[in-house]
Design a protein around this nucleic acid. Sequence first.
DNA 1: ACTCGGTGAGTGAGTGGTTACTTACCAAAT
DNA 2: ATTTGGTAAGTAACCACTCACTCACCGAGT
Lengths: 217, 217
Amino acid sequence: MTPRRRTKSLRSSGQERQASIITAAASLFAAKGFQGTTTREIAKTAGISEALVFKHFPTKRALYAAILAEKASFSELLATVEESARKRDDMRVFTMLAGYRIRRATDPTMLRLLLFSALERHEISDMFFQNQHRIFYDYLAGYIERRISEGAFRNVDPLLAARAFIGMVVHHRLLHEIFGVPAHRSPEDTVDTYVTLFLEGLRAQPSGAKKQRLTPG
Amino acid sequence: MTPRRRTKSLRSSGQERQASIITAAASLFAAKGFQGTTTREIAKTAGISEALVFKHFPTKRALYAAILAEKASFSELLATVEESARKRDDMRVFTMLAGYRIRRATDPTMLRLLLFSALERHEISDMFFQNQHRIFYDYLAGYIERRISEGAFRNVDPLLAARAFIGMVVHHRLLHEIFGVPAHRSPEDTVDTYVTLFLEGLRAQPSGAKKQRLTPG
DNA sequence: ACTCGGTGAGTGAGTGGTTACTTACCAAAT
DNA sequence: ATTTGGTAAGTAACCACTCACTCACCGAGT
């Protein structure tokens, strides 16, 4: 029996392969950084030979740039859709998208990629970073300015407030996901708490463990 | 026994050399990470041959561990002195030391070392990290609990509040010193503002540029 | 229905350069 | 004379990247 195109082909198309290389490389770069990842490892993770990686990307650095560019352009797309929702005054969609973007941008893999690229000072990373964080600033700018116009947050400097908020969220993720400090709440819960804490003027839930030690462990 | 040197010797003592290697290596590791730094570079920066580096430290990793251990033990020392000042109720010394420790721990070189060691997941970095952050938690724990007992910050969860504050400070440093986003105030000013902002319940200076755009640049 | 040649997917076995680390030896200080 | 600070010149392993080559697939000609 000579089966024809019945099951999956033995060879992938160029686009499929390119995507699988990017996926493999992204997780490795996020885990070990650019310098810490070898092209041999990338090939092994993608299940192909090292030579094929270089058929798709001229250099290791070009592959890295492609990954960051892809992530950045997806963020850009989300921002555009979100902006149009805001203009249509569709607050349900806007809030949902903004929430998704915040969760995505504070996702451990994204954070590790972001931090590594920033620390290792790749030229490409500037754009990536600016894109990732403009999201937050724009989102919070809108929210805070709206609330201020409603009479809330008297005497609050919006830029400082936005930065403070981002600081809380990012730092929580750093602590919990990257540095491995155990969280005393679920991530979702904590981000929500931070939002409340920040936006309502540092009034946290009264249910908090007041006598808790501040040093974890 | 005590060798008194009239003129500068052509050769350094073991301890002097060891210190100079650590200094050179620390700045390189902070700038490029463990993987990104070569032992040749370290030797060149310290102004000696590569072989001599290995006379003082058996492996590159051991040198790295020594750097983190040194930083951590200095922090520990500061914490001890500070604790004794607190017990003596010497608030002037306590506040001064605590301020110094916060400034030191948010210093760009320390932050880069910390972030790199955490991202690259060296076993040694755990201790280093725990030490660096216990500083904040303990300092803030004391402050916040004191203020709560005075009737301030009703319904505030101290752990969350401490984390939020650290988030603000660390994120500001990340933005400004590592990611290169221009600060709209001086670093010292901003840290102080964060302290005020946090401790007084998000009431920032009314002098703030209220109509400022939130996106820098 | 079958062959055959063109094309792109895919690889094993390198290449030169770099890395962490070593060896064998030297010179200054005591 | 011995110890200690110091080096030039290695070495084996590993790195990003290349080369020469094979194989799978498809469609045109018969």
